[in-house]
Amino acid sequence: MEGELMSVMKMWIWVGTSVSYCYWMRKVIPPGPTRLLSLLPVISLFFFLPLTFSTVHLSGTLGFFLAWLANFKLLLLAFDKGPLSHPQVSLPRFAALACLPINLTKHPSTNTSHPLRYAFKALLVGLLVKAYDYTQNIHPKLIMCIYCFHIYFLLEIILALVAALARTLLGLELEPQFNNPLRSTSLQDFWGRRWNLMVTTILRPTVYHPTLRAAAALLGPKWAPLPAVFATFLVSGLMHELILFYIGRMEPTFWMTAFFLLHGLSLTLEIALKRALAATFRLPSLVSGPLTAAFVFATCISLFLPEFIRCRIDVRAFQEYAALGQLFTNLASRFSNFFHTNIII
């Protein structure tokens, strides 16, 4: 664990140097293919860096931060689009926007989430981790449901901490990362307005809008959103496969991609039905909400989470929790010994 933490410090030197290079390249090279070529070495480096770590939390987090979000933002920057293309952004803000799962908003923050809310969710994560000690007495499907909530709470806490850090150090007004996904009334509501909005924000300009423009020329504006939605979910599935590879280093089975393709097809069908039946029929939210939750949980348990189990991510994560606890214990012991030796004596 200590070796991994030292590698993190070295990695951020590479990342800081690379981001500074991108910051100055956008000033001297006009947008287009030439700027894209100048950014390709950094994009390649960001795909490689997560492979230098072996722990679940570091390889997965860096895969999400760098290989996915940062690289997609750099692709947008190549054509003078996205959050990195703002002409007045400073280098520290440019670096934060490039490397962290945050996004500027044009309006003042209205997020009134109390810190106690996240403290409560951190407590729930602890209870869920403790529940894994009794897995032999719990039905496997229920264990999968626990995994669902564990991933959701942990993601929300991590992203909230990153957002709070960026807000405190750089004064950035940030978009929220989650918007009560358990209250979703449809797949369109869940994926478009409630779940991991940072991913939604980056996929719209990089995948959805280009596909939408191409499809509009072939199918017309009414039906163009359907292939655009499907293409967006396909790319999301492939990027999830990449992050899973960073974590597990195992040959992909593409079941996770199947999960996103199924949701893409289902969401495409949902949009088509809404367009066809909106004037005559619509399910009440009291019905559509539970149906949406049931579909998300059922597909997650059958297609998404088994891939994590196949890579033994749960077992390795608990080992890392124990190693991190031992690291803090060792550091506390060293500090105590130093204090007694050099201060008291």
Rank of each mutant, 00 (worst) to 15 (best):
T34R: 10
R35T: 06
R35L: 12
R35A: 07
L37A: 11
S38I: 04
L39C: 06
L39S: 05
L39W: 05
L40F: 06
L40W: 06
L40M: 08
S44G: 03
L45H: 05
F46R: 01
F46Y: 04
F47T: 00
F48T: 00
L51N: 01
L51G: 03
L51R: 00
F53C: 01
T55F: 01
V56H: 02
H57L: 03
L58R: 02
G60M: 01
T61D: 03
F64T: 07
A67S: 15
A67E: 07
A70L: 07
N71M: 09
F72L: 14
F72D: 07
F72V: 11
L75Q: 13
L77D: 11
D80R: 15
K81F: 14
L84Q: 10
H86T: 10
P87T: 09
Q88K: 15
S90M: 05
S90P: 04
L91Q: 06
L91M: 06
L91V: 03
F94H: 07
F94G: 06
A95D: 02
C99S: 04
C99K: 02
C99Q: 01
L100E: 02
P101T: 05
P101H: 00
H107S: 07
P108C: 06
T112S: 11
T112E: 10
T112Q: 13
S113F: 07
H114V: 06
Y118W: 15
A119F: 15
F120C: 13
L123V: 14
L124H: 10
V125D: 09
G126V: 11
V129K: 08
V129M: 15
V129T: 12
K130M: 15
Y132G: 10
Y132F: 13
Y132H: 14
Q136Y: 12
I138Y: 12
H139S: 14
K141H: 12
L142H: 11
L142I: 13
M144F: 12
I146E: 07
Y147D: 09
Y147K: 09
C148W: 09
I151E: 10
F153G: 07
L154N: 12
